[in-house]
Amino acid sequence: MATLQTRATARLMMSPAVILLFLWMIVPLVMTLYFSFLRYNLLMPGTEEFIGFLNYQYFLTDPAFFTALGNTLMLVGGTLLITVIGGILLAIVLDQPFWGQGIVRLLVIAPFFVMPTVSALVWKNMLMHPVNGLFAWIARSFGFQPIDWFAQLPLFSIILIVAWQWLPFATLILLTALQSLDGEQIEAAEMDGAGALSRFYYLVLPHMSRAITVVILIQTIFLLSVFAEILVTTNGGPGLQTTNITYLIYAQALLQFDVGGASAGGIVAVILANIVAFFLIRLIGKNLER
């Protein structure tokens, strides 16, 4: 029943949000693209000139890029592995009836609301500190040599912190999916003699598969851009051991003032994220039709 008039009103109501978002997306992106073809360093003003794909060539052949790409994949993959498997197990436990279920649920989702700088510093200092940290004390009480987390296992330490932050997200979404599972179906399987493992494998897991995909895709988008946790704990070090793509580009832009090089890196990061986004958008779009 949309008349011409209501349609015009609707367009008017949408336009501020649409126009602003369009500008927000397109203007900086075009600028990044433009800068990526220039030699442009803030420390050498006035020397800007068009250099074609040279910035891309430098960025993509720099050994630091491959290190950062590897670290990014490890960080995303490691965190996903911990949060998805942990999330499934936690969701199953939280789905069982027990005393204080509501409170435990609140405890489990709490880390998600802690700002990244706080979680990183609390973990680095109060838990992982090689002398006064709680982990060191636990290790010593059992007669082990404490681990110097950020010196010996820097990337793994960051993965642990990030996984702690994202485990609640995975748990909450998987739990929501689990709760929509038909209880009678499970019961029927049980009566037919299906064991707990085969019930999980043939009923629960397929039911959760969509939610698992959503968790993986959404987390990947955010995990590609992990930044604050690295900045306040290791500054990308030691060496380049905890430098991911995001941090590498940040360092190139705001520490070395290489606008051209950082822009080329930015475009590479956008392309990487778009590969993931492509699948996510399709998945959510499919859901919208139902």
Binding site: V27, L29, I221, V259, V270, A273, I284, G285, L288, E289
Partner: peptide
């Protein structure tokens, strides 16, 4: 639906991709 999906896609842009121009602006 296209507008909604397009809005969502802006969220997928990694912030570091527009760090340089935004900083300069």
């Amino acid at each position: 639906k296209d507008v909604l999906m397009w809005m969502l896609s802006t969220k997928m842009m990694p912030p570091v991709g527009v760090l340089v121009p935004l900083y300069l602006i």
